[in-house]
């Protein structure tokens, strides 16, 4: 299926919960409302014709004012097409339904996203630290997290990365 057809199928199922969609490099990125995130994944996995049975990754993106984006990449080995399911949760109410009921492999991805961004996944069986040491406080990949080394010693290069 082409990315446009995939988007059409999802819009047909979820209706208004599909906030936006775009296609780039032959991969459709569909942004859904946070409450329907796991449902969208279940629909993508179980529908004949879509068959997104391979769960690649789930990760977070700190998008500043808009909130935290959460992106899931799914792939269909049968039809050989990809999809990126995206959602945006607000900064102060960062919760999402868990995807472990749909994809068992999402368990550790959600644990890592929780410990790095602070996004709580409702219904997750074991939401504890995965990679960071036990005494670590804070959620490091948030943009507001202070890097102590940079506070103590400013960046020695002439330009900030990104300039």
């Amino acid at each position: 299926m082409t990315p446009e057809e995939i988007i059409q199928r999802l819009v047909a199922e979820l209706g208004d919960d599909v906030v936006e969609s775009e296609t780039s490099y032959d991969v459709a990125t569909v942004t859904v409302a946070p409450a329907r995130y796991a449902d969208a994944a279940r629909f993508a996995k179980t529908t004949r014709g879509l068959d997104f049975t391979f769960f690649d990754f789930l990760t977070g993106v700190d998008e500043g004012e808009q909130g935290y984006g959460v992106v899931t990449h799914l792939y269909s080995p049968i039809h050989k097409h990809h999809i990126q399911l995206r959602t945006v949760v607000p900064n102060d109410a960062a919760t999402l339904p868990t995807m472990t009921g749909v994809f068992r492999g999402a368990n550790w991805h959600e644990r890592e996203t929780w410990e790095m961004f602070g996004i709580v996944f409702d219904g997750h069986p074991n939401l504890v630290k995965l990679l960071l040491p036990d005494e670590f406080e804070g959620h490091p990949l948030r943009k507001e997290f202070l890097l102590m080394s940079r506070e103590v010693k400013p960046w020695p290069g002439a330009k900030e990365p990104g300039e």
């Binding site: 670590f136 890097l147 102590m148």
Partner: peptide
């Protein structure tokens, strides 16, 4: 000295 990851939150310098 921590190398290229000197400013990371989890690396010992």
């Amino acid at each position: 000295c921590g190398g290229p990851y000197w400013d990371s939150y989890s690396v010992a310098k």
